[in-house]
Design a protein around this nucleic acid. Sequence first.
DNA 1: ATCGCCTCCTGCGCGC
DNA 2: TGCGCGCAGGAGGCGA
Length: 271
Amino acid sequence: MPELPEVETTRRGIEPYLLANRFSRIKVRQPSLRWPIPKNLSAMTNRKIESVTRRGKYILISLGRHTIIIHLGMSGSLRLTEKQVPLRKHDHVSFGLSDDGLELRYHDPRRFGCILLASGDVFTHPLLEKLGPEPLSNEFTSDYLFKLSRKRKCAIKNFIMDSRTVVGVGNIYASEALYLSGIRPGKAAGRISTAASAQLTVNIKKVLKNAIEMGGTTLRDFVNSDGDPGYFAQELRVYGRAGKPCTTCETTIKAVVIGQRSSFYCPACQS
DNA sequence: ATCGCCTCCTGCGCGC
DNA sequence: TGCGCGCAGGAGGCGA
């Protein structure tokens, strides 16, 4: 389940190899991802790769007029390998690079991810146009979060995981940020105080920044690595710790399901 | 407009 | 040790 930090780490890992390079061959083996891979993806060869950016959990590879949009879903990864390295099961797409004998491979056992193609302004693509601010940007402020949450009855955890509110907050970091902010995940978004909203904004930024920094340490040898920056060894305070003692007060951590997703909190530290 | 449920898919963990 | 079942999970889409 790549969350934003894993996606950003992947982006940073592949960027140096892609920039100013070209795809010499694009081979699609399994086109059935979340949406079918467009047939003309394979035609996107020999175009200069102008940038490798990220919007939310989408990796954007700009080829000038066209942009390849890649989402890793929950089991996807992108790895660089030498072309002669045998394919693994679930290596659905290979992007051969022209310069250096390397290949970018999209691997996704559960196929919840997607690879799409946009032409023109990628930010008007339906998947991108309604996205909220980047969590680490100056646009994501406590004031913004507070105002947007007014009169909202949904759980605060669902609210911060909604990409229209803010992008890139996945299930793990939502639980962690709410813990650090002393807010119960099931609390109605509209009932969050200004102080809690400020805490939450800061802590969302904090957990994501921490994880990205930890990811940075895995960037060495991105080529032929296991391609899975995966879950950084960041200490998780509540996620997956149901039944274990809270690291602050030793109260037993509780698990609840909110919006079909497992959520964890300390009944004493969070209200 | 907002909310909550459903869906896609495979690997894994658990229970027997 | 082996098998089968059920669950997890990002996020768009849809029905209420």
